[in-house]
Design a protein around this nucleic acid. Sequence first.
DNA 1: AAAAACTGTAAAGTATACTTCACGTAAAGC
DNA 2: GCTTTACGTGAAGTATACTTTACAGTTTTT
Lengths: 65, 65
Amino acid sequence: MKNNIKDFRAIHKYTQDELAEKLEVSRQTVISLEKERYNPSITLAFKIARLFNCSIKDVFIYEDE
Amino acid sequence: MKNNIKDFRAIHKYTQDELAEKLEVSRQTVISLEKERYNPSITLAFKIARLFNCSIKDVFIYEDE
DNA sequence: AAAAACTGTAAAGTATACTTCACGTAAAGC
DNA sequence: GCTTTACGTGAAGTATACTTTACAGTTTTT
């Protein structure tokens, strides 16, 4: 699963710390998501999409497993 | 997080077993999702939306945590 | 040049998604 | 009746999302 979190973060000019705070997760989680070390829960995915004012599909690209 | 999995399953006339098979998860997982005992991973959410030919938002209703 | 701000890694721990197995119940068909 | 089918529960185990802490490199600011 690919994602554009880093790009969206850049557009909104957030630091990893700020983004983590807004999403109510740790900075480590933001780093790991950006580095695509793991996929978010659907709850976090919803939060991210809401924060960036777009749909989950805009942030996360699912291409068959 | 609420979801309409049971309704979508009824529309498509799948048994829990069949749905589990199509989603490549266990029947327990289907039961637990329908009973809203836990939320799916984003990967599974994508699979579900794809199977039911709709968007994640159509199946999962996120209302602030 | 030194300090502060930002990004990154690594490791150990906790929470939760998901599996497997075993069992119970109720409805439908033979 | 009994068998099969579909739905449900409970518990123990595994995988992975997420946290916390500590430390390091690089860039920006003073």
